[in-house]
Design a protein around this nucleic acid. Structure first.
Lengths: 224, 224
DNA sequence: CGGGATATTGATTGATTTCAATGTGAGTGG
DNA sequence: CCACTCACATTGAAATCAATCAATATCCCG
């Protein structure tokens, strides 16, 4: 049983609203219950009913699926501000786990669907959100399909940098294994490729989780 | 300039409606202008404004993007009945081409967006459609990430079979190159893997475009 | 019956995986 | 404060799968 369902979000205290009513993320903040998940806790599992919509407040979330023999594909990482948990059908196609201690706000999906019926702004936002997820999935597809290890790592670093406070360095919340499973590589290849990028002075590995992008142009060139 | 814009769909004669008003595909059929594209014609190009929504009537469509050095990734194939052309932003992230002679119906996106505002059924359908595309993209991601050539081909064949009239055989509208670019493999690997599957009697290559699935269980086992 | 595009098959190369060992860093308890 | 430990990361050597290079083969169409 996932931790998400061990609690009942509805009975948790509501947090005071912080912004525009009517907007989806606003509604999430206003009506959402805050939940905390420790490192590696499951937020929802593959195949479980998709009852809630989530927004990351602090920490990082990964969604993933397992192949029968244990190979894992990570579908996306969600950073603070990201909304996740939207699904095509009634069931989650991926499972979601906290990477490191993570706080999310949660609202019932049905709440939104009700809202969307009367509130065209929310309906529009739900569509925009879905479209954004679709675009990201397509981008990820491109990355997995025909790129070399070096290109994948370069794309990944640039992608993370886009979302980082400082564009010239990234703090990776996830392990090498997570990166590998996201990029369709092995942990060894990720490690080797990073060292290789350091050798050509495209990056600097300040520590294993903190990477400085010394030569953004070089990375962009690799991004193909 | 893409052929799609060489015509103006609005001046083409409207076809009589054939079904439920209010439904999205119904509206597409009713209000949509029919357009024909010869083999390999571009329906829309990457980076062009996403002004229309399309539905395949006859034929097959592929959406693809090119990497800088010519590598191509096919994002999806659309068969008769499929709706495509929805986009996150204002611009197409992929280009779309007809595989073989193809007929589509087209409506302006703005028409739908107007409709969606007043008609919650259409709004709901747009969301469902987006969600379906997202699910497919995620599925495709899985296929590209950590699967062997054999697993990719098996998945692909099963996926095509699901949509075929007879589940025990598939007629492939696309070339080996298209399959390769969809699966992130080379044409040679696709070809070799198909012969290999024939050798183990999982399939039979009646002709290069017509494949009989002799042993669905074996393919499912490979699907991992 | 060409002729060009499409597909298959073969030989070889090469990138990434796999197997294996070593290194590093954070947290714990002595 | 240091030694210990465990998880995580890096590095090395060998094996493997798919890509590449190259040659036929087949199909479709005029």
């Amino acid at each position: 049983m996932s931790i998400a369902r061990a609690f009942n979000p509805e009975v948790l205290s509501l947090r005071p609203g912080t912004n525009a009513p009517g907007s989806l993320t606003g509604a999430l903040d206003m009506m959402g219950a805050e939940m905390r998940f420790p490192r590696n806790a499951e937020i929802f599992g593959e195949g479980e009913p998709a009852e809630y919509l989530y927004r990351v407040v602090r920490g990082t979330v990964r969604i993933s699926t397992l192949l029968s023999d244990g190979r894992r594909q990570i579908g996306a990482f969600y950073l603070p501000g990201d909304v996740f948990g939207l699904e095509a059908g009634e069931l989650h196609a991926f499972s979601a786990e906290a990477i490191g201690d993570t706080t999310v706000v949660v609202v019932k999906r049905s709440t939104f669907e009700t809202l969307a019926v009367s509130n065209r702004e929310v309906a529009q936002e739900l569509r925009t959100l879905l479209a954004m997820h679709l675009r990201r999935a397509q981008q990820h597809m491109l990355l997995l399909g025909r790129k070399t290890a070096q290109e994948r790592i370069a794309s990944f670093l640039l992608q993370m940098a886009e979302r980082a406070p400082a564009a010239s360095a990234v703090d990776l919340p996830m392990s090498r294994q997570d990166i590998a499973d996201y990029l369709g590589l092995t942990i060894e290849t990720v490690s080797r490729t990073l060292t290789q990028l350091e050798h050509i002075a495209a990056i600097r590995l300040a520590s294993s989780r903190h990477i400085e992008l010394c030569n953004r142009a070089a990375l962009l060139r690799m991004d193909a």
